[in-house]
Nucleic acid binder design. Structure first.
Lengths: 160, 160
DNA sequence: GCATCCTGGTTGAGGGTTCAACAACGCCCG
DNA sequence: CGGGCGTTGTTGAACCCTCAACCAGGATGC
């Protein structure tokens, strides 16, 4: 097996510390200012952008890159806050539809302000346009690598 | 307040999905193959690289970018597995020193193989040398932005 | 000496995530 | 129709993290 060279280690560790510090900062900011973690914020965003401000649980999970279980727990919590309501799906009696309430939309608008400011301040404002283009490409490449990997895993399981 | 433009949103979302998918993949790989989350793996790495394979809790927390509380819980768990032992600090009777055991070192060596392979496969192998240089710069810039931000927060608190 | 404050570390409660198990429903085919 | 099979969504237990509270020990000033 091939280990990482000294330079590779440096890149790797620098990348990981930057990413963890960045996401922790955003998470803390949202938690402090709006009382929700980033995962919940993203659920509200996804709902707010959906037609009718509502989505099937499974579609919501796909949009948020979340597991069904996680989403189920999360929506239960969001429902307690009256930011989301669940209703039955008319076309499929297994289904459940999560809908954003007006209160949920209001809290989202309020939370978005601080969140976007933080993102701008710590990402867009510290990078040059050239670096942003580069970051977009890098993200695409990493994402593509992981997606093909998932396909590989599926293949392996298919063999069993 | 300034919102994100369409291109900015695209970069932002692409970046976040790539990062979360990437870290979740690594975390799952470690959990599956070695029974520990990435945070615990990094604790073992830090100890293995320290002189005498041991560190004061506070130094360990600094190296791992971890809170003292989190580290305390984590080391308690690692101690139950006999991968780490805690002993008193001779020079400061408040202190506690975490030391890597031979069993801990062995499990680390075993875990490192799969982890490094995953990192290489999904990061270094999907990026060009040029992109890696760029990623290193971007990481530095973001990290610097967050560090100065922490300084600003400290200032604010100092004002109170 | 001792009152005060700061630092190092632990603890417990509360909340979020994961994983495996499960119930309920749709789909398909004999 | 009715028995498998895959899908949708929920649940509970176990685990990890965060936050605030706390204890014990150093450091400082009088």
């Amino acid at each position: 097996m091939r280990w990482l060279s000294a330079e590779e280690q440096q890149v790797w560790r620098g990348f990981m510390t930057a990413v963890t510090k960045f996401t922790e900062h955003l998470d803390r900011q949202l938690q402090r200012d709006s009382g929700m973690p980033m995962a919940y914020y993203e659920i509200l965003v996804a709902l707010s952008e959906a037609p009718g401000r509502e989505l099937r649980m499974s579609e919501l999970a796909a949009v948020c890159h979340s597991s069904r279980s996680r989403l189920s727990h999360a929506v239960a919590r969001l429902e307690k806050e009256d930011w989301v309501v669940r209703r039955a799906c008319p076309s499929d009696r297994r289904g459940s539809i999560a809908a954003l309430t007006d209160a949920g939309f209001a809290v989202l608008e309020q939370a978005a302000a601080g969140h976007v400011t933080a993102v701008r301040e710590h990402l867009f404002d510290v990078l040059t346009p050239e670096q942003l283009r580069s970051l977009a490409e890098i993200s695409r490449a990493v994402d593509a690598g992981l997606t093909s990997e998932c396909a590989k895993v599926r293949e392996e399981y298919a063999d069993l």
